[in-house]
Amino acid sequence: MSVTSVPALQHTDRGPLSRDEMAQALARDIPRGAYVNLGIGQPTTVADHLPPESGVIFHTENGMLGMGPAATGDAIDPDLINAGKLPVTELPGASYFHHADSFAMMRGGHLDLCVLGAYQVSAAGDLANWHTGDPEAIPAVGGAMDLAVGAKQVFVLMSLFTKSGESKLVEACTYPITALHCVDRVYTDVATFDLTTGEAVGVRETWGISFDELSARLDVPLTWAGS
């Protein structure tokens, strides 16, 4: 399929997606009724676009299914927090369980999908999101490795370029790896990528940049997803 035949997927009449629009774009692709874990930080904002009527059930690594929105005011309960250690609420039908069970749900392949941030993602789906590799940095992994290997699908939500303009979608990760061959899709401000298409990285949609411009800026071969 030639680039010009898919103008609907190539939004060059506007700028890149805002952070909120990125979360919205990802949320649209989450199947109704899925069991979903949202990572700390920007991935958490995906929940803003998945109301209870979406049927999506949120898992939090610290031992809960059926997590509701952030708690405010009188609803704040110090015994009820999310993975980012912020107060949350429980929805009808929620359940609590201990940490070994919580991670068995991930590792055992029971969780449909997780959304994670990333420093880098490779064309082969390797994920780097836990350590910058800086010898001065204090390493901290949390649940990232377990989520990445365990969830049936891994969606990454990140800006495509660093502040200095380097692509975070790379041929091979230079940051320490979180897990190999685990990322299925990458949702960024300028494009959505499908890493399950084979040799080349599939582009599903672009914003504020054409497919050809995008190809010129990345070191990985691209193709239109589904072409």
Partner: peptide, 27 residues
């Protein structure tokens, strides 16, 4: 890794001598 931390303690409590996990492979 958080899940390995939990499972290593579970193994100790359950008398299991270790566990093979996919978490952390290649890292």
């Amino acid at each position: 890794p958080q899940g390995s931390l939990a499972e290593r303690m579970r193994a100790a409590g359950a008398g299991i001598g270790g566990l093979y996990t996919p978490t952390g492979v290649g890292t």
